[in-house]
Design a protein around this nucleic acid. Structure first.
Lengths: 216, 216
DNA sequence: ACTTAAACGTACCATTAGGTACAATATAGA
DNA sequence: TCTATATTGTACCTAATGGTACGTTTAAGT
């Protein structure tokens, strides 16, 4: 990041610190629920400073969302791709790493993205922000799907047969834990959930056939 | 429901129809995101009529929430408690019945309750409404937990050993599918997810021990 | 037909929403 | 030190928010 300063009064606040504060407000309240007053109060700056530094509410949101991804999502990738560990262990570590964040008391509970993505259907999120939120959705599914398709152990276990569905299952589970975390459920309680779901993915992979909708 | 009419002009709108319309707005937008203008427009009445019939935004929300439970949640209970069917089948039917509703095009996607419960943490939902949303949360978990504790087949399979955790697992899965449904994922795609998770619950019940947080 | 009471529609209230104009202030370079 | 430029704080803008006052309209009971 290159900052060119020609002259003029210096900024009193740190842009990254302010962005972090804005991110936490969106995390707690969503895009629609976060007011400019909420945001600027947490960021500890006034509105003109916010507008000059970040554009408007939508562009601030886009930057905050990117900040969330960079600082709160990417970190979990390491444990997923860690070599030398069995696939199931890597998946468990990855999922529990995310669940741990969802339940942490260091910031709002749950997942920033799950909350804001659920607002999209309401139709009150501006165009560019909506586009970003929809794009983000596909990345983790593609990542897991790709893993099931290419990992040697996954192929041996037959998990590649239903790679997309298995990825969807884990992603759905993480959206569920995000919602539960918002309701103050603990990481310890959710570990059972993750273990059970992983057991389902690993045990049912070999003899799965397309099920019927309602069984009699 | 007893309606005593003394005299005066007759209502032009049907209260249940209006409540249904309000419910769908809250379902799409949440409590905070739904404005009085959104609500009265969908209800096809004006504000004074709304206030005289339903009190205010919060009491309207409480009635709409109860309407949702009565009309969109209770219906699924039948298939869960249907006698003569294996437990796993009953659970699958119950969950797919809910997933089918979450994915239906007859109303907003996802779950009214999951959306509104996720707004609670934002702090912008009034007291009584918050209380109701939190109370509602415990019912389905208690129902499933009780089922695992008392159903003969569940006991035989050892599912009662971790009744509360198994209930939490299924409830978490349903919250996940609610979030996925909002993103236009289909009921067919989610059936795989439900099957996998049920397989996990039913297969891991016999030899489960408390897991460690991060495995090496 | 007349009275009484309820629902309706318009117009309004105070507050908050997102967003800006502008003067005062602080800084770097000449 | 002077000038050019960028940030700050205050005060304001318009539109939308949840909520109401009040006069008009419609119906039931007599």
């Amino acid at each position: 990041m290159v900052v060119i300063v020609v002259s003029g009064r210096k900024r009193k606040f740190d842009e990254q610190t302010a962005l972090q504060a804005a991110m936490e407000v969106f995390w707690a309240k969503g895009f629609v629920g976060a007011s400019l007053a909420d945001l600027t109060k947490s960021m500890n700056i006034n509105k003109p400073s916010m507008y000059s530094a970040f554009g408007n509410k939508e562009t601030l949101f886009i930057k905050a969302t990117q900040h969330y991804i960079d600082n709160n999502m990417q970190a979990h990738l390491g444990v997923l791709l860690a070599p030398e560990l069995p696939l199931k262990t890597r998946l468990k570590n990855y999922m529990m790493s995310i669940v741990g964040m969802q339940c942490s008391t260091d910031h709002p509970k749950g997942c920033y993205l799950v909350l804001c993505q659920s607002e999209v259907a309401g139709g009150d999120i501006p165009e560019q922000a909506t586009k970003l939120l929809l794009e983000i959705e596909s990345a983790p599914i593609a990542l897991l799907s790709d893993l099931f398709n290419t990992d040697n152990e996954a192929i041996t276990l037959g998990l590649n047969e239903n790679a997309a569905s298995n990825a969807l299952t884990l992603y759905t589970a993480l959206k569920g834990t995000a919602a539960m975390a918002r309701s103050k459920v603990t990481s310890t309680e959710l570990e059972f959930v993750i273990d059970t779901i992983l057991a389902g993915v690993f045990n049912t992979s070999k003899n799965y056939s397309t099920p019927k909708a309602i069984l009699q």
